[in-house]
Amino acid sequence: MVKTYRPENLQEALRIRRETHAVPLAGGTDLMVRYRSWAGTLPKFPWPVLFINHLTELKTMGLREDGLHIGAGVTLSEIEREMEAPQALRAAVSEMAAPALRNLGTLAGNICNASPAGDAVCVLYALDAQVVLTSLSGARTVSVMDFITGPGRKDLNDDELMTDIIIPHANFSHVSYRKVGTRKANALSKMSFCALAKTKLGRIDDVRIAFGAVGPTVVRSWETEKKLLGMDADDLKDHLSAIHDDYDAMIHPIDDQRSTAVYRKQVSLNLLDQFLQNLVKEL
């Protein structure tokens, strides 16, 4: 028999988490699928479950000094409707699932899933998003890319709960988010691409480029992005093939049932080239 807990408040949730290491379930849209059984029997959780979807402390969302804070209990639908949320994130959230999933599922759950194919995670990488991990001993903040350590693996201690996601302030003049799937909505993507750039006086002032589902984790390179900073249209034109080659060397997708490695790689580079060429035109 599975043990389940329904704490009254966050403090109690953290205590139960420390004492039992019960697995937190907010929306449940991932866990209920993963531990489902087939035809007529009940889901089979291999561990105790801690319900946190009703905790009001986790349901806040709003701008603060360090950026947009999204509580771990905030649903994807609520983020989609939040005007302060970055455009690319809202697009990713609305395309990733049908309303009945968005209405239950949370971004925190999506991050904890640690899937290299998570569409929202690709965008969060590009946005430099951070997560707040809280336990009875205190809280720590880590970047999403440090939090996700591999497919399905994450830096979460067994007494911690993810309580908040922080998206630092930033403005972009160029936003490109593409989810390439077999079908549009409600499908896992073959690959996703998120590129953000800000230009100032004809030069690149900020740029972030992230590729989802092309490696064990989302691919993003500070080194290459740094090269792009300060470039004007001519510089960028001269460096198009070098940048292309940089990413070519970094992207190592696999074959799976949704796509082939060779396709994922080619499309990643096609979308990169297109983004950079458009940038050249608009610089």
């Binding site: 929306g27 849209t29 209920m32 889901p43 479950v49 639908s77 009945a100």
Partner: peptide, 26 residues
């Protein structure tokens, strides 16, 4: 419980969710 076909749709506090993905604890 794949959360896909929608035959299990209900409204929870007025908004659509898949009942098969909802645990009684929620």
């Amino acid at each position: 419980a794949e959360g896909f076909a929608g035959s299990d749709t209900i409204l929870l506090d007025g908004i659509p969710v898949y009942a098969k993905l909802l645990s009684v604890g929620q």
